[in-house]
Nucleic acid binder design. Structure first.
Length: 851
RNA sequence: GCGGGUGUGGCGGAACAGGUAGACGCGCGGGUCUCAAAAACCCGUUCCUUUCCAGGAGUGUCGGUUCGAUCCCGACCACCCGCACCA
């Protein structure tokens, strides 16, 4: 028998798919549509196994759905703007466009080499003018609708990448790419008004049952809705009062001070005449934003000499502070301090010797003895020292306080959100230009898209190459014709990826989004990507979808009906004694009993085996799919990354694992290359044929259900089992058995097709089937063959398994009891015992309670 | 600190819906084939006791509910993830 050679077989079938244009999607079809999408890649240079796993998962679903009769759209594109291209330009002097295009060519070939069933005619590249020009068009539409604005504000400045980052891109005080400590800087920047959609983004999560709860919870927490009271305290000697936000209006009588953010407008007013206050504000601004610094940062403040009157009782007077822990852009940028019931306020009060007045009595506490020392009471209780609120519970007191504030005209019920507007300005040359022209006379005016990037940017120095370009920004104002300048900020690349799924629906459309295509294909039925985008890309995309819907560009509320977040591919790490990282190919292993020792292949020098970690260039534990394909074939690699762990979990890449998958490929091929072969038949051939048919149909059921539940590892396990059964089935000299084998092989070829598509085609053609297995219908199972006529029921005595009986499927309690009590083994076990109770779970188990 | 998750053999993991724990793969042990090795194939493989037959324990720990718990409830331990001065 000729050994299966994936290196010969696989390219042949990829060529056949190409020749047949096998994965082209067309909008006009009677079939139900199914839009399968994986997060598109950044063209970094080479594909790694993590990409392969992500796209293999999507391909399994897409191929299965296609076979099940859906009109499937499965496109691919490139998230092509971004910093690595600028870094390459800076280091090697290459044009980022050329560098990116070369990477795309390489990676397109590598992706294609994975045997993915993709409609390449729809390929999108975000750095192409036909894409980013249309992005500029909708950007301007949102601008006209007031959803885009420019303001001066404190921004997260990444000093290494020399650009601004959005809040979502700052992880533990560091830039999400550079890892540099973020500084706060004040500069004008462009924002998208995502906060306008806070409520809908929150409520919409409930319409996404096929999203992981974890992601929905993370978005919910990120949006951070709280209900409370906005209330104004009159200031002595001033016309305007000071407005604060609180979620604890019940504790208003416990107030002992007011505090405003150092960035609050009132702070600037008082600083103008008081150098000490100005100095304090400056000091606050210098403060770092790293986790450690915030943790240790002392609560500090300065009394600004103003006096506020309590809205409920003007005789109560409160000092006003500027405090470093009050945030400008949450609530009103100002708070009232209630030290007894808020830990921060308590710390502040102790430092500045302010009164601590308990107003909530914990349940069971003695009002005469209760007092707050170093720990604020934030739990439930009964109001005290609070005039009209006395005796109420916290929740009812909140309502009563809000009612009183409203009737006094001092405040009202409001909602506050933690979500901030999305800062989209980036000081980068390799990005989508913001299509705005600044004119001294007319202000910011629209530049008509596409606003193209110049090709002669200088990336040799850090910072914004676009800004440095000698002529690009110099234009005349489209309104008045006077001298004007282009905006030199470009858009955050998360804007590029926030609508690409809609462009895939009709990438040829002249409009920004082709309506007919979008109406047909959207929303994406199944989206797959990494959990790291839980609040970045996935929140931005939801917002942009809603904003574009309201602008009339598309007609869906949510972009992704189903979401699956897949785990990473990890690999062991290896280093020499001196700490130098080693590539897996440089290391060889020696078995020592149950354990394993690693040595350097070249010298035999001992190697330290480290934890399995996410593949990264710095740790040199990256495995390239192309290298594996050359040895084991792509099908084996796909089978392995899908089989060894559940898809939402990380999978550890191991050579032994791929070898196991490769064995499966060869066994399957063995079954097809000698389709009639098997051990001699021992019993009744008709019975053997029936047993084989049962196994085939059970496999169809199990694999289908596993794929639909995203349990690819279980699906592959069932295929393993089925192949073992098929190999053990008797030789097909008998007519019925021959037919059963033929059916089994036909089923096997089709159920492996989503996982190992090349092998499946080769098997399908070996069977003599016409056409591609990629276009063959998914096998259906006969329920009668899946059901077992006779069941084996374990028999327990007092919960311990003591034997088993055979009973017809669906046998009644009394029928089962009959069988049990006639069983001699069970009878022997029951000697000397009295039966107290018999529990029969039909088709499942029997439990005898005896003493 | 707040919120969420996970914990099963030597390893990755399986177990519908409270009903035979450990499917399938890896590794390991034994065997067939071979002059030999590799490959391939076959058998075995939770732990303890036991020649056999068999018995006992067992899903992070302790307790509870139940005829029966990996699954439900309570407390705890460990690890992972998200947020983090959000008033």
């Amino acid at each position: 028998m000729k050994r299966y050679d994936p290196r010969e077989v696989e390219p042949r079938w990829r060529a056949a798919w190409k020749a047949a244009d096998a994965f082209r999607a067309d909008a006009g079809s009677d079939k139900p549509k199914y839009y399968m999408l994986e997060m598109f890649p950044y063209p970094s240079g080479r594909l790694h196994v993590g990409h392969a796993r992500n796209y293999a998962m999507g391909d399994v679903i897409a191929r299965c759905k296609r076979a099940q009769g859906y009109n499937v759209l499965h496109p691919m594109g490139w998230d092509a703007f971004g910093l690595p291209a600028e870094n390459a330009a800076a280091e090697r002097g290459v044009d980022p466009a050329v560098w990116t295009e070369e990477n795309i060519s390489t990676m397109r070939a590598e992706l294609d080499g994975l045997g993915l069933g993709i409609d390449w005619s729809r390929e999108i590249t975000t750095c192409a003018p036909e894409y980013y020009g249309r992005q500029q068009s909708w950007f301007l539409q949102l601008w006209r609708r007031g959803l885009v604005y420019r303001r001066d504000g404190l921004v997260n400045w990444d000093p290494v990448d020399m650009t601004v980052l959005a809040n979502e891109q700052v992880i533990e005080g560091r830039g999400w790419r550079s890892g540099a400590l973020i500084e706060r800087r004040r500069r004008p920047q462009w924002f998208m008004r995502i906060t306008d959609y806070a409520e809908e983004l929150l409520a919409g999560l409930r319409s996404l049952p096929r999203w992981p709860d974890k992601v929905k919870l993370m978005q919910e927490n990120w949006i951070g809705k709280s209900a409370g009271l906005r209330i104004t305290f009159p200031l002595r000697g001033r016309d305007e009062g000071l407005t604060v936000f609180t979620t604890r209006p019940d504790t208003l009588f416990g107030a002992s001070f007011l505090a405003i953010s150092p960035e609050h407008p009132l702070a600037a007013v008082v600083a103008a005449t008081d150098p000490a206050i100005a100095a304090f504000i400056a000091e606050c601004r210098r403060g770092g934003v790293s986790e450690a610094e915030i943790e240790q940062a002392e609560k500090k403040g300065v009394d600004i000499g103003l006096t506020a009157a309590h809205p409920f009782d003007p005789s109560i007077e409160l000092p006003v502070y500027i405090a470093n822990f009050v945030l400008l852009d949450y609530g009103e940028g100002a708070i009232f301090g209630c030290p007894a019931h808020d830990q921060r306020d308590l710390d502040f009060a102790r430092k500045y010797d302010l009164p601590v007045r308990p107003v909530v009595l914990p349940p069971g506490a003695d009002p005469a003895l209760f007092h707050v020392e170093q720990e604020a009471w934030t739990g439930p209780g009964t109001l005290m020292n609070s005039e009209f609120l006395d005796g109420l519970q916290v929740e009812t007191a909140k309502e009563a306080a809000i009612d009183r504030a409203r009737s006094l005209g001092a405040g009202e019920r409001v909602l506050a959100y933690r979500l901030r507007d999305w800062g989209v300005s980036r000081q980068r040359g390799w990005g989508c230009p913001i299509p705005i022209i600044h004119c001294q006379a007319c202000g910011p005016v629209e530049a008509s898209p596409p606003v193209l990037l110049p090709r002669d940017l200088d990336f040799s120095r850090p910072g914004n190459a676009l800004e440095r370009h000698p002529t690009w920004k110099l234009v005349t104002c489209p309104e008045c014709g006077g001298k004007a300048e282009r905006e030199t900020d470009t858009l955050d690349t998360f804007v590029d990826s926030a609508w690409y799924f809609a462009r895939f629906a009709d990438p040829w459309a002249a409009e920004t989004i082709g309506r007919a295509g979008a109406d047909y294909w959207l929303p994406v039925d199944q989206y797959i990507g990494g959990i790291e985008h839980a609040v970045l890309h996935l929140l931005y995309s939801r917002f942009v979808t809603k904003a574009l819907r309201d602008a009339g560009l598309m007609d869906v509320d949510e972009p992704f009906a189903g979401l699956f977040t897949q785990g990473m591919v990890t690999h062991e790490t290896y280093r020499r004694q001196n700490g130098e990282w080693l590539e897996p190919s440089e290391v060889t292993f020696r078995q020592e009993g149950a354990g394993r020792r690693a040595v350097l292949r070249a010298t035999g020098e001992p190697v330290i085996i480290g934890e399995a970690e996410k593949m990264s260039k710095s740790k040199r534990n990256v495995v390239a799919p192309a290298d594996i394909a050359g040895v084991y074939g792509v099908d084996a690699a796909r089978l392995f990354v899908l089989s060894d762990s559940p898809p939402e979990r990380d999978v550890q890449w191991t050579t032994a694992g791929v070898e196991g998958a490769s064995r499966l490929v060869n066994r399957i091929w063995g079954a097809f290359s000698q389709p009639a072969a098997g051990p001699p038949i021992e019993g009744d051939p008709a019975k053997e044929a029936l047993a084989l048919r049962r196994s085939s149909h059970r496999t169809v059921k199990a694999v289908t259900e596993a794929i639909e539940a995203f349990r690819f590892n279980s699906a592959v396990a069932r295929i393993h089992e089925f192949v073992a059964v098929l190999r053990g089935a008797g030789e097909a000299s008998h007519r019925e058995l021959a037919a059963a084998r033929r059916e089994a092989l036909s089923i096997l070829a089709r159920v492996i097709a989503p996982f190992a598509p090349h092998l499946a085609e080769e098997c399908w053609s070996k069977l003599g089937e016409a056409g591609l297995v990629a276009h063959a219908p998914w096998p259906e199972f006969d329920p009668a063959l899946v059901e077992e006529a006779e069941r084996v029921l374990p028999v327990q005595i007092n919960g311990k398994r003591r034997g088993e009986i055979k009973a017809p499927a669906g046998a009644s309690q009394s029928a089962v009891e009959d069988i049990v009590f006639r069983d001699p083994e069970i009878a022997r076990r029951l000697e000397g015992l009295t039966i107290k109770k018999v529990i029969v779970v039909p088709d499942r188990i029997v439990n005898l309670v005896a003493a």
